[in-house]
Simulated assay, not measured.
Amino acid sequence: MYNRPWQDAWSDHMSGGDWWWMGFMTLFWIAVLVLAVWAVTRVSRALEAHHGPAAPQRESARETLDRRYVEGQIDAVTYAEMRARIEGVHRDTGPKEDP
C-alpha cells in the first residue's frame, strides 16, 4: 500500500496533532481580522470626535451683524446702515436696482 517502509497510515501531514494546529491558525487569523476591524472603527470614531463635524457651518452676514450688535461692537445707527446694505435696501431710494 505504501512505497516506503517508514510510511504508514499515521504519517501523512494532516494526521494526529496537525488537525488542531490548522484549527488554531484559522481561529488566530479570524481574531486578527476582528481586532483590525475593531481598531480601525475605534480610531475613526476618535478622530471624528476630536475634529468635530466635517464641514462646520459659517454664520451668514446677517447673523454676524446681529451678533456684533448684541455684543455691543457696533451702535444702532451702524447696525441699521449695515443691515440695509445686506438686505439690499437704500434709505433714500428704496430697493437697490441691478445695473
Rank of each mutant, 00 (worst) to 15 (best):
E87Y: 00
D66F: 01
T78A: 06
Y69S: 01
V70Q: 12
E59T: 05
D8Q: 03
D8G: 02
R4D: 15
D75W: 04
A54C: 06
M25N: 06
W6L: 10
Y79A: 00
E71F: 10
Q7C: 05
G72I: 00
A80E: 09
M14Q: 13
V89S: 02
A76L: 05
M25L: 10
W10H: 15
G72K: 00
R58D: 12
R85V: 07
L27K: 07
V89C: 02
G52Y: 04
A31Q: 05
E48P: 02
Q57M: 13
V32I: 15
A76I: 02
D12E: 08
S60I: 01
R91V: 03
F28D: 06
E48T: 09
L27P: 05
S11H: 07
A9P: 08
H50V: 12
D92C: 01
L35P: 03
F24S: 08
D18A: 15
Q73V: 01
V77T: 13
W20L: 10
P99M: 06
D92F: 03
M25A: 07
L47S: 08
D18F: 15
A39S: 12
G17A: 05
Q57H: 10
A55C: 10
V70L: 08
T26W: 08
H51T: 09
A39Q: 13
D18R: 15
A54T: 11
A39V: 13
V43Y: 10
I74P: 00
G16S: 08
A55T: 14
D66H: 04
L33T: 15
I86W: 01
I30V: 12
V32L: 11
G23Y: 04
T26M: 12
K96C: 02
I74N: 00
W29C: 09
E97A: 12
Q7Y: 05
A61L: 14
V70P: 01
T26V: 13
F28M: 14
V70N: 08
A49C: 04
